[in-house]
Design a protein around this nucleic acid. Structure first.
Length: 431
RNA sequence: GGAGGCUUCGCCUAGUCCGGUCUAUGGCGCCGCACUGCUAAUGCGGUUUGGGUUAACCGCCCAUCCCGGGUUCGAAUCCCGGAGCCUCCGCCA
């Protein structure tokens, strides 16, 4: 299959016609994100320059094409003069094309610099300005001295961070014994739930090409958290969202086939640059973890409804794990470049007396689809699809499960729904 | 690591040797119309994508035969570089 590589094709991250019609909306979005709204004007200007350059190029090419055609049908006497003229025009074409490609490069960079347009209704502000939509379940009341997940994990011989550090360094760990069983069971339960809801299960590559990473929106401000294998120019994915978005790259999908829903199971890798000193204990923040992730391709008009569905499926998982949690509407300034809106579910972590992120669902609208060139055919031409993603389960969930379901003797009750997946109803300390 | 083959408009495919008439062939699929009591079958027509022009349409212009560069008045076609896929050999699981 022939593919249009991001670097070579004209990227249209934002619908230019829409932008020309209503630049203020995009400016307002940039402002809400705390990003530079002058980037919008730079984009408009780059668009103008490129259009002018292309129009000039088209005119010269038309002339040059006509001249070449004349050469073919000319009599031997006329030929030399016509060839000389055509040669001259050919030179002009080359010059015009140099200007065109320069203008296109500028436009491409201008495009890539602008983040997705914030969905109406997203809370204004930064990281601390999220809005709590709902709190679900009662926080556990313990009548004994509680342990944190690492102590519990060590008692159960489920988590071994010492040997993880010995072998791979800080923020690496081994899951052993019931720890390994618990994680596999949890992920499998998530996978089964999604499959039951009609998702296609997928175990994707965890190394992807630059254009997939770029197209998914991870090489912007998030780039420092991405592992790069320079030798092969491949990136280790931080989430299966990347390979699942790339799955339909450069394809025109049948509109009737939507929604296309995939549930990915993969290891995920994050450098965690800039988070030194945060969450250094245990497995809350690690370089490698496993995740089951939902990913949907839907018609753009369906995106908001799908977003709610993804959120509902996440909540179903949390309910089955019997975890107390809250749902937050993430503020505009705290959204990743690709997200127009994001809802997180945060479970209660007793040892920290805090809610911590367990799931995150983003509506990326057509942002990723434009970069990855994923379209549907409509009556009049093609149109980018909308993509959305949402977490079903991760290694971090073990933290919440161990801590919330611990008992005074250091054993941990397995939530009922998980019992068949883990093969036991209690995790017992190993002496 | 070494050698060879391949990549064409949704899918398959002709064309590439020997440059212009390729404004890209045919089939499948899809869309429309006709015919039939409905469906099927059949017949006719349409169907790459992006940009520009237009209020919109029709039409027209430009680009597009994996990507980039080169040769040439002119490149799907010739040359160079790159990517991807496949096969075989070697090496290692």
């Amino acid at each position: 299959m022939g593919t249009n590589r991001l670097a070579g094709s004209l990227v249209r991250v934002i619908d230019l016609q829409q932008l020309r019609a209503d630049p203020d909306r995009v400016r307002a979005s940039q402002r809400a994100r705390g990003e530079d709204e002058a980037l919008v004007d730079a984009l408009l200007e780059a668009d103008e320059s490129r259009r002018a350059a292309v129009a000039a190029g088209d005119a010269v090419r038309a002339e040059s094409n006509a001249a070449s055609k004349e050469v073919r049908s000319a009599s031997p006497d006329d030929r030399p003069a016509l060839i000389a003229r055509a040669k001259e025009l050919s030179g002009s074409v080359k010059q015009a094309e140099t200007e065109e490609s320069a203008a296109e490069a500028v436009l491409r960079d201008a495009h890539l610099a602008v983040s997705n347009i914030i969905e109406e209704g997203a809370p204004p502000g930064g990281a601390d300005d999220y809005v709590v939509l709902e709190e679900v379940g009662a926080k556990p009341a313990f009548d004994f001295e509680t342990k944190d997940h690492l102590e519990l994990g060590q008692l159960l011989k489920a988590i071994d961070t010492d040997r993880g550090a010995k072998v791979a360094g800080a923020r690496f760990y081994y899951l052993t014994g019931v720890g390994a069983l618990l994680q596999l069971g949890l992920l499998r339960m998530g996978l089964d739930q999604a499959v039951g809801a009609g998702f296609t299960p997928a175990i994707p590559p965890v190394l992807v090409r630059p254009e997939v990473m770029e197209g998914t929106g991870f090489l912007g401000q998030a780039a420092e958290n991405v592992y790069h294998l320079a030798e092969d120019d491949l990136y280790l994915v931080g989430t299966s969202e990347a390979p699942l978005a790339g799955y339909h790259m450069d394809e025109i999908l049948d509109a009737n086939s939507l929604p296309l829903r995939y549930v990915g199971w993969s290891s995920c890798f994050r450098r965690e640059a800039g988070s030194y000193g945060q969450d250094v204990r245990g497995i809350v923040r690690v370089h490698q973890f496993d995740k089951v992730e939902m990913f949907s391709y839907v018609h753009p008009d369906e995106a908001q409804a799908e977003h709610q569905r993804l959120l509902a499926w996440e909540r179903e998982m949390l309910d089955k794990c019997e975890l107390p949690y809250r749902v937050i509407d993430v503020a505009a300034g705290d959204l990743g470049a690709s997200a127009a809106r994001k809802f997180d579910c945060e479970a209660w972590v007793p040892s920290q007396s805090k809610y911590r992120e367990m799931t995150s669902t983003s509506n990326c609208t057509d942002f990723q689809a434009r970069r990855l060139n994923i379209r549907i055919r409509e009556e009049r031409g093609t149109r980018p699809v909308a993509t959305l993603n949402g977490t079903l389960a991760t290694t971090r969930w073990l933290v919440a499960i161990l801590e919330n379901h611990q008992r005074s003797d250091g054993s941990v009750r397995v939530p009922e729904a998980l019992v068949p997946y883990v093969g036991r109803d209690v995790l017992e300390p190993v002496t």
